[in-house]
Design a protein around this nucleic acid. Structure first.
Lengths: 112, 112
DNA sequence: GCATTATATTCCTTGACGAGAATATACCTC
DNA sequence: GAGGTATATTCTCGTCAAGGAATATAATGC
């Protein structure tokens, strides 16, 4: 989790991840689109790979880097634990449900 | 967004955020629970505050720090754009919806 | 095998960050 | 206003990470 945050806390790596959202890319392709020198791209990709955020598969001399789902999924699960905090509707709804009409109409918002 | 990642990429700050999930806390309270020296707690809280992740409100000599919703909400919204990547069901559903029954029943799953 | 293309690694320098210790500031009580 | 409590800031030091330049490695085609 922390490694995921660390990997995404660099602006260039963040842009790489954003770019890879549209599909796998070769190293030079990334470098050209983001205006980065090839060595830096490789270095950033290495960090992303060690953080588990990307995966590689060779294609001739090229290396196609693609996003991995797992870290983002874990990030999402972590964030879910804060859901009640940032979604005000839930708080208001919870209060309403609990204080006023507990029995009248249980319009099925399963809390967990 | 990147500032959020940077703030959460430090282990101590991450633990502070996790602790604050249970509600506002004073500085010394945080330090005792997480076994951190007071100055470091203050410094980390400052970073979190500048990143917009926490807010302060004075209570006598104490400063109660509490989580702010907005950055987590933005993080969630950002993650949503990767939803199709890590939730395989959505890909299948998108294909079905687009290829087969575009006009039949638009049961409003807004792609954006 | 050799040239070419594509990518990875190393070395170096610089800047940012975190920890610890000491000190400063703010607020309360009496 | 003196003393105590709670928090913030400063300073220094060591470490680590990022960028640039140069070089090394890998795969391809002839």
């Amino acid at each position: 989790m922390i490694e995921t945050f660390a990997a995404l806390s660099d602006p260039h790596r963040f842009r790489i991840v954003e770019l890879l959202r549209s599909g796998p890319r070769a190293v030079n392709d990334i470098g050209e689109r983001l205006r980065l020198h090839q060595p830096q791209v490789s270095k950033h990709l290495r960090v992303l790979k060690e953080a588990g955020l990307v995966d590689v598969q060779p294609r001739a001399q090229q290396r196609l880097y693609e996003l991995r789902a797992q870290p983002l999924r874990e990030l999402h699960e972590w964030l879910e634990r804060y859901h009640q905090l940032w979604d005000a509707r839930f708080e208001a709804m919870d209060e309403l449900l609990e204080e006023l009409q507990q029995e009248e109409k249980p319009h099925g918002r399963s809390k967990k």
